[in-house]
Structures are given as structure tokens and as C-alpha cells.
Write a protein that binds this DNA or RNA. Structure first.
Lengths: 229, 229, 229, 229
DNA sequence: GATGAATGAGTGTTCATTCAT
DNA sequence: GATGAATGAACACTCATTCAT
């Protein structure tokens, strides 16, 4: 902070290619997500994360405070992306049964495609959710999936094809459970029972069954008899 | 070599409860299961595990070689107990629909009651199943749950109340997924959506829905209309 | 951030002599050489080496990776110094017989004066040379001792005073063997046979005999009769 | 050594196949020699030594007290064997020059054939001879090599073919130095200078040169001119 | 903003040795 | 004499973190 430093600060030309704070943050966040997902919270090394980065270890501390801060940021970012994906879903125009099936399919596929995110959630659950992003930032009835399911369920009830007595949250829970388990427990499940369910065909079958299971759960017997084979 | 020593030598009762290898092994295994489940593989400290034990840290290495060996032993033991619980289930005499519901209920309750086991499985999945007990030790068609489901499903088909085209493995997958998610993801799920589903009432609802979901998935539409409210 | 901190920041002289990587490396290397030579590879403790150093134990790993890396560095450095000493020898101008004797004397004295180096070599031989510096770094026909002996021997042959049929490598082997044994085996030899050979007078006698032995080995009988008493 | 011991000693039938204390000692000693020679004093593990043995780790402590005691015993035994080999040498009848050469050859070959012994001596020298067997047990003018060399040298002087002014100890030192270095430093020497000297042909050359070197050193110029090519 | 150097407090692990039988 | 079980003290090595520049 003396004159020599000011000289350096004034001399833009002397800077490295990386002077955009947001880019640096994103760079670090990407490396951290990768390694945290790969090796878990304790297993991931700050050093290794830094090595995947274009900047030095010190920058991680500069931007995120400490390892836990970095983890929180990675987790928050991952949830944020998930929320974004959900926002993008627009099934409000579809007939309720089809909308429900599409949502189930989307969730199943999305989880399978974003293994890193699922792994982060697994790890965070091992930590009993201690580092979850602030409640007001993501929870409550303003979550778009829940709003979407509310809309679908209401329309299904109005059409007389959905059973009453269920809640959007319970529907979401079921869709999530099946889609999550498919990714999260693949390792142990396939070691015990073989990987028949995890081949491309197995996955296709599983996805169809998840959607069907959900529909059978929600549809009235008559609607089910009509809509399902 | 003096009188005091003779007293000790003469006093069998004063000896430690040790010198019983099986007991020491079990003691260590219990402490390790607890701490591994609590803090994860990397998070659990050998020192801390030993502190929960009646023996010294060194004994852990004497009996289990290293930390990974201890983890493997804990995991194998946990699976062994699970298999034992499954063996004990005798639902062969019940009508197929009831047997299926009982199995779902049992799994849901069993998972909820054995959080430690679920956490071990979560952790092992974070490690991509790298330390799973030998395949031939646990997998194959001789797993009792699968055999049980086979029997139930066959009887249901024979009675004309189950839909054809499903496999016991797929049924097991669905029961597991819902029961597992209920425990494994409680932390993150409840932070995002509140803990309504995890109160005693919420859990009871969830359990009933899991059973219902399964039955609706398996029963023919006619049987469903007859058997379910 | 208060006045005291400013004082420290302002006082450049109070800073440690560190932040000079080469100096730290050399510091560690010196301590390690000393302790490795004193106690052997397994016997030397990293902690003890660090204690001889102005820096923390951690720095040893920072600079050398692990204990073996440190040993390699110490050994390489010791050989490097030896090669340097050999380079400095300039006996090309002397008459061949005298040059040979001087080389023998130098080697004998040099080995005796650098016991630490000899001990390092002893230890490395116990390890079967597993950590030797890269072959291309030290060996080959470009070793200066060998080149020097080649020159001396060739000139002796040309002058008709050296016997033909010997190789520079064999001459080096003999000089080394006698000079090395004198240091390396002093402990056991003197315990068995007394220390008569290791008093200052004994050493002087030994040195003279080593030179004489070599000359008698190399000189033609006639030259020997002329040059040696 | 009390009555109880006598009882056990009297009861031959109760013993395992290994009840001969001397055999057990020898068994342990053999395993220890092997491992100490292979890995050094610190490098050798009591556990590993015991594993090479027909008996348990505890027996090592029973027979030898501690690791150092075992090392001392191994070293003493190795020296004892060496002395025995020397005793067996009978060169008193041969002409002095031939006797000398034979002694040199024997030493060179014997060292090369008993690498384990040389390695033990190397290790003991790293420890500065701290564990050498008692002086009176092995040292002094009563050593047979020295006596032998005394005899040879005296006869050579009497015959007028040996130069005066040398001592048997110095001759032994030279023979030992060359023979010892050949084994002890092979690892580092060959890594630096290649293994030309350590092929069967190289070794044969070296052995011949060692004998020649010694003879040239001891013979009068005239005798040398007569006896050596 | 950014870096290479530096570190205290722990981590899993090992080792010679002893105890109980 | 002999054994499997047990251990305290150390050991090499690691990690998140901070300092000096």
C-alpha cells in the first residue's frame, strides 16, 4: 500500500490475463464443485482444487473465506442451477396427467444427467444439512416445483381424474425419492444386485415405471384404467 | 514378584474383560460404526474411535489393519445384519397384497430405525462403492428379499390380482428408493421444504403412501379398486 | 492493524532471514546431511533434522516431498561436491608417477576429511544404491577422475614407465578401495586390531603405503627400482 | 533354573517338535542375520524376523533380551564363523609368495561369497562399531590371520624376497580393504562407473590384480621382476 | 488483487516391547 | 518354554490456513 504498490496497481498492462473477479469466482467454483463431488468434503483438498484453477490457493481464501465457505458457495450455486432448471419447466399448458408424467420424466433424467449435483446433495446429507443455503433463499411455498405441482394437481382434481387427499409436497417427495435413489445408490445397489437396472435399457424401463407409479398413485381408479395400459 | 503381585495374580476377577478377541473386535466395530456413521469416513478419527473403545488405538490396527480395513469390516457387518433382518421376515404365508404392504412397511420402518446403517450406505455411495463386501458374499439370486418378492409376486400373479410384466428386482428397487430417501435425504429435504413430512404424523402418512403407491403400482386396476380405499 | 503492527511492518530488519528459498534448502540439506551421516537413513528423525534447522518440519516436506526425497537430495549434493573437488584437481602438468601419487594422496586425505560423505555412501550401499542420483547425471566417460587417470596413464605408458594392460577404471577402483576402507571400516577394524593404524602416525604410514602400493602396481619393474626407495 | 523348570525339562513328551534351545537360537539367529543384512538394523523388523522363524516373536526376547541383543548375537556369530574360516586356512607349508597370493585370493573370494557378513559389518560400521563383540573375544595378536601373515612375512624376509619395514597388520589391512570394497561398494560404484568390474570376467581380473598388487607391494624389486610377468 | 513461502495442530500408522495365560 | 493379545511412544506425513511481499 505504499507508493511502489500504487505503481503496480496503476499499471494495467502488467496484470495477468485473469483480472475479472466474477470469472475467477466461477473458475474456482467449477473446480471446487468437481472435486467436492468427486471426493467428498473432507476428501477434497484445497490444494487440489487450486491446482484445477487458473489462480493460486490464496485466492480461494480471498474469495470464499475458508473451506466451509467454499463448500457453501458450491452448494448454493448447485441449488441455484437446479431452481433455474425448474423455473424453465413450463408444463402449465399440458393436461394434468401428461404434465405429471413429463415432470417425473424430467426429474429422473435431470438427476441422472447431473450426477455431480446429486453427489453434492449426498455429501451435504452426510453432514446433516449443516451448510445448506439460507432458508429464505430457497425454501418455502414459493419453490417453483411445488407451485407447478400445485397447479397440476389442482387441475387434475378439477378434471376429476386425480384422487383427492394428496399434497403437492408429497408428490414431489415421491418423484424425488425415486429419481434421487436411482443416481445416489447406484454404486451399492448395482454391486449387490447387478447392474441390470443401470444399463440404458434398464434405465429406460425404470424411468417409465417411475412415471407410471406416480400416475397410478395419483389417478382415480377409473382414470387409471382409462389412461394406463 | 512381591506379595502385591501375588494378590493380583491370584485375583482372577480383577482382570480386564479383555483377552477375548471376539469381544474386542465387536467393541471396536461398534465404536467405529457409530463414528463413521456420524462423521463420515474421512471425518471419523481413528483416535476418536479408539476413545469410544475399551482398548487402545493400536488394537484397531491389530484387528483391522488400517482405517479402510476397519471401514470395510463395519460396512460388511452392517450389511450382514441387514441380511439377517431380511431372513427373519416370514411373509410367505400371507395373501400377496398384504405381504407386499407388510414388506414395504417393514422396509420403511427398518430404514428409519437404523439411520446409522443408511448413513454408512450413503457414505459408501459417495465412495462409489469401492469398499463393498465381496459380491459373492452378498449378491446373486440368493438374496432373501428378492426371493421373498419373487414368491409374493408369483402368488399375486397366480391370484390374478397383480399386473404381469414386472420383476422382483424392480419392486425391491421401488420399495428401497422410497424408504431410503426418507432417511438419507431428510436433512436437505426438510431444510428446503420444511419438516412437515418428518413429524411422527408426517412419517406415518408417508409410510402409508409408500405402501399404497407400491400396491397401486402392482395391482391390476380391478384389484386396486377392490382392495384400496 | 494497530500501532504495534505498524512498528513491525516498518521494521524490515526484524524479519526472519527466511523467504530465501535457496538458503532454506541449503539449511535443511546441511542439517539432513549431518543427521543422516550420524544416524543412518532409518535412524535419522525428520523431527530432529528440522530441529537443527531454522525452519519448521513442514518445510522439509515442502521442499523435498518426503524423507526419501530428502535423502536423495542429500546424496546428490554430496556427490556433486565430490565431483567438484575432482574437477578442481589439476594434475595434468605433473610427470605421470608424481601425478598418480598425488591423486592417491588427495583421495586418501579427502576421504578422511569428509567422513560424512563416506558415511552417506556406506548407508546408500546398505540400501543397495536404490536412491543414487540419475546415472546420466554422474556416470559415463565424462567423469573427471577417470579422464584424469586416463591422461596420467597414457602419459606414463608413453614415457615407458607404466606397465601396459591396465585401465583407468581399475586404477581408480584401487585408489578408492584403499581410501574408502580406511574411513568406512575404521570402527570395526580398530576394535578388532587396535587403533595403531588410525593414530596420526598410523594414518601417515597408511597414506604413504597406499601411494606406494599403487605406484608399484603401475610402474614397470625398472621404473619402480628407479623411482621407489 | 528352579525345580519347576527341571520338571518341564524332564518331561520330554510334552514338548513341541522344537524343544532344543540351541536349535531355536540357531533358527532365530539365521532369520535375524538374513533380515539384518537385507534391511539394516533399523530397517529390520522384529516381527518380520519372527515370521521367518519357526517360533514366536516372544522367543526372540526370551533368548536375546532385545533387538540390540539380537544384533550383537548375530554379529558375534558372523565374526565367529569368519574366524573359523581363517583357522581352517593352512598356508604355512607354501612358499611365502604363493602363500600370500593364496591368502589374497581366499579373502577376495570369501568376501564375495559371504555378502551377508560384509553387509553386517557395513551396518555395524554405520553404528560406529558400538555393538562389537567383546575385545578379548576376538581381537589381539592371537588372531589367526595375523599369525598367518606374520609367519608368511617372516619366511619371505628370511628368503630375501620380501621388502623389510612392513607389518602383518598392514598387509592384512590392504588385503581386507580391496576385498571388502569389492563387495561393500559395488552398488554405488557400479551405478556411477558401470558394472564392467562386476561381471564374472571383471571379478576375475580384479581378483588377479588384488593379488598382484599385494605381491608387488611386498616383493623386493628383484623378486618381483623374477616372479611376476 | 495476487503469490510463493511458511506453519501448528493433527492424521494414520508403526515399532519394540510386555502382559495374561 | 511358549503364545496371542495388548500397548505407549513415536514416526512420517498432511491439511487448512496465514504471512511477507
Amino acid at each position: 500500500m505504499d507508493e511502489a504498490d500504487e505503481d503496480i496497481a496503476a499499471d494495467g498492462a502488467r496484470r495477468r490475463w485473469k483480472q475479472d473477479p466474477e470469472a475467477v469466482r466461477a473458475d474456482i467454483l467449477g473446480a471446487a464443485r468437481k472435486l467436492f463431488a468427486q471426493k467428498g468434503y473432507s476428501g477434497a483438498r484445497i490444494e487440489e482444487i487450486a491446482a484445477l484453477t487458473a489462480c493460486s490457493k490464496r485466492m480461494i481464501y480471498y474469495y470464499f473465506g475458508d473451506k466451509e465457505g467454499l463448500w457453501r458457495a458450491v452448494l448454493a450455486e448447485a441449488y441455484r442451477r437446479t431452481r433455474e432448471a425448474e423455473e424453465a419447466l413450463d408444463l402449465h399448458g399440458l393436461p394434468p396427467a401428461e404434465a405429471l408424467r413429463r415432470l417425473a420424466d424430467f426429474t429422473f433424467e435431470n438427476h441422472a444427467a447431473r450426477r455431480d449435483f446429486i453427489r453434492l446433495v449426498m455429501i451435504e446429507n452426510v453432514h446433516e444439512g449443516a451448510h445448506m443455503p439460507q432458508a429464505d433463499e430457497m425454501s418455502g411455498p414459493n419453490l417453483s416445483v411445488i407451485r407447478l405441482l400445485e397447479d397440476i394437481y389442482r387441475r387434475g382434481l378439477a378434471a376429476g381424474i386425480f384422487r383427492p387427499g394428496l399434497t403437492p409436497l408429497e408428490l414431489h417427495w415421491q418423484i424425488s425419492a425415486l429419481s434421487y435413489f436411482n443416481v445416489a445408490n447406484q454404486a451399492t445397489f448395482s454391486r449387490i444386485f447387478g447392474d441390470a437396472l443401470f444399463t440404458p435399457e434398464g434405465q429406460a424401463r425404470l424411468k417409465r415405471q417411475v412415471g407410471e407409479s406416480l400416475l397410478r398413485f395419483v389417478l382415480t381408479p377409473e382414470a387409471a384404467a382409462r389412461e394406463l395400459p
